[in-house]
Design a protein around this nucleic acid. Structure first.
Lengths: 253, 253
DNA sequence: AGCTGTGAAAACCTTCACAGCG
DNA sequence: CGCTGTGAAGGTTTTCACAGCT
């Protein structure tokens, strides 16, 4: 998923598999909810259900962190919250900058989930001089000219790019040069970064296209088998251009 | 069996691996850029670089679609654009509804990438009566009460949830009952859906947490070899099961 | 008895390396 | 020759199933 230019295998003895790392935040969220309800312990089965995974996977994931459970009982909720938080590095404060304060950037600045877990929006940066000084989510927008200084003054190592695609690589280069080593990219473009810099991307359009693929597949199966769907299969797409004519006409030229 | 409904792709009939499907939009974007520059053909090496993957992977991916290249030459850009679009189901029109028109929902409604590829924002829906009728991105917001009718009238099969976490499952249930079979979820919660419904989630907080994990790991390695990095909030890395001055008392029953 | 932790098996994905075709 | 298409190898992730602890 992450598009690091040269991703290291990282198969260290102490290495936690990437797939596991990606699920830890999910477990943490479920555990936090249990914690708020003052639930003292939880079994792998229950926690897995809350996180939307199966219990064998969860136990395997936890086994990479250590032996934090009690056989016959389950896991201590508070203790696990702490261990996972520590493993993810959330026991420290991460100042973050958001570059590109358009609709999306503003929405991100306002997003509560950012602040809730160790992340602090240290600065908002935009290239439009007209925006400079204007507060968004209570934080004054600063101009791109000062990007390097802002990064440096705040000790920022994580940057969020929410600019238009055309500006993203340039912004990325400046962030990296200024010392940022992790980037969350919302611009629909592939960023190239030097080794050692992590990039994760979020692309709304790509997610929709993946859904469309499966949606199309479902429609095709429905036409072939008719009424086999467990859910509202009786439904028909109105904007379709002919479900029957949509048969794969695979034909290389 | 557990009640968890993790969607099982099942890989039926014309099985394209999930990992490949997830990359097709990436290739498509790179190809579209080439097409706009009137580039007639492209090699796997070039296209792979533009999409940020390696060429062997790209060729393997394309091999699942068919033999669309020409040995010694490469791929015909226009032809590939068409084939991938068709495979992804983008040659048809997908009406989409966005539920929850807060900061994020409004940003999504304004996001150009939606409209660009077969997706059309058919309606915006919000629970706040004060928003009803107010146009966002040129589309009037409608009230949640009319959700079912809106889905039905527009033949919507893809829904986007941008509500607060607390409302997400309820909205999801109504969307599914009304006939939606693909959901893109921005709310930080696990949705449970019946079999046959696809859910993809986008969680900003999770992405940041994954970055924080790697960032922390980098900081730790740096400390071992010195480096004078900009961010030096070095945390003590305890050994495997080092139960020293940890947070609350470990309290096994 | 109940539930975790984990080897082993299975499934899935990526990379290699080269045959085969234009 | 150059580049695609693909078996085979190698790596990662998931699932199984049960030993082992409480």
């Amino acid at each position: 998923m992450a598009t690091g230019r040269t991703h290291r295998p990282a198969t260290r003895s102490r290495g936690i598999p990437e797939a596991t790392v990606a699920r830890l935040p999910l477990y943490l969220r479920a555990l936090t909810a249990l914690s708020e309800r003052s639930v003292p312990t939880v079994s792998s089965e229950e926690l897995a259900a809350a996180a939307g995974v199966n219990s064998a996977k969860l136990r395997k994931d936890f086994s990479y962190l250590g032996s934090y459970g009690t056989r016959g009982v389950g896991y201590d909720v508070e203790y696990l919250v702490y261990q996972i938080s520590r493993e993810l590095g959330l026991t420290q404060d991460w100042p973050v900058v958001i570059v590109g304060i358009g609709n999306l950037g503003a929405a991100l600045a306002n997003y509560g989930g950012f602040a809730s877990r160790g992340f602090r929006v240290a600065a908002l940066i935009d290239a439009d001089p007209a925006m400079a000084g204007k507060p968004v989510a209570g934080i004054p927008v600063q101009h791109t000219d000062d990007l390097e200084k802002i990064i440096d003054d705040n000790g920022v190592s994580i940057g969020v790019i929410a600019t238009p695609a055309g500006a993203a690589q340039q912004v990325c280069d400046r962030l990296v040069a200024a010392g940022v080593t992790s980037i969350l990219n919302f611009a629909p473009t592939v960023l190239s970064v030097p080794e050692g810099v992590d990039v994760r991307k979020v692309d709304l359009s790509i997610e929709l296209q993946i859904l469309a693929f499966h949606e199309q597949r479902k429609a095709g199966e429905e036409a072939a088998a008719d009424g086999a769907g467990p859910v509202a299969a009786a439904r028909k797409k109105s904007a379709d251009k002919g479900p029957d004519g949509d048969v794969p006409a695979v034909m290389p030229a």
